[in-house]
């Protein structure tokens, strides 16, 4: 039994307790094996952490985390230069920033995001857009 972050969860893990969304709505019962589709659903519904039966699986991740190339790291450090990277929240935001910078190398926040090209909203799969690559790793 271990409570792990949803980002650390992988298909094949088994739930030790019910998975609930932010408002307590039950999504998947204890004892069920998690599939990639479940993970997507969890993310869509804003699940932040889940309780799984075997913790060994969860630790596999960590190592893969940020092998950002140096220029991006430097750019991110520059962006955060007024902050203490030792702070846990800042560290979290910093890592996310690196991931984001890698995805859009030269874009520096001037043009509007492809707002006009987007198809209709309210489609659930859309909320996991941009994160697909994270799962693609597996």
């Amino acid at each position: 039994m271990a409570i792990i972050r949803i980002l650390d969860a992988a298909p094949g893990m088994v739930l030790a307790a019910d998975a609930q969304d932010m408002s307590g709505r039950m999504l998947l019962g204890a004892g069920k094996e998690i599939t990639a589709k479940h993970l997507k659903t969890f993310r869509t519904w804003g699940v932040t952490e889940i309780d799984v039966q075997d913790s060994a699986e969860g630790e596999k991740r960590a190592a893969v985390d940020t092998k950002a190339d140096e220029s991006v790291t430097k750019q991110a450090q520059e962006h955060f230069c007024q902050n203490d990277l030792g702070n846990p929240l800042i560290a979290e935001l910093f890592n996310n920033c690196i991931v984001q910078m890698q995805k859009q190398p030269q874009k520096k926040s001037s043009v509007k995001p492809e707002a006009d090209k987007k198809p209709a909203r309210r489609q659930l799969p859309q909320s996991s857009r941009g994160q697909v690559s994270r799962y693609g790793r597996r």
């Binding site: 949803i6 993310r43 932040t48 952490e49 929240l89 935001l93 707002a115 909203r121 909320s127 857009r129």
Partner: peptide, 22 residues
């Protein structure tokens, strides 16, 4: 708010931002 909620918060911001811009 627990630190474990941060990735979800970031993701929600991204989705809702694009909606808000529209």
């Amino acid at each position: 708010t627990p630190l474990s909620a941060v990735p979800t918060i970031l993701e929600q911001v991204k989705v809702q931002f694009e909606d808000a811009v529209k």
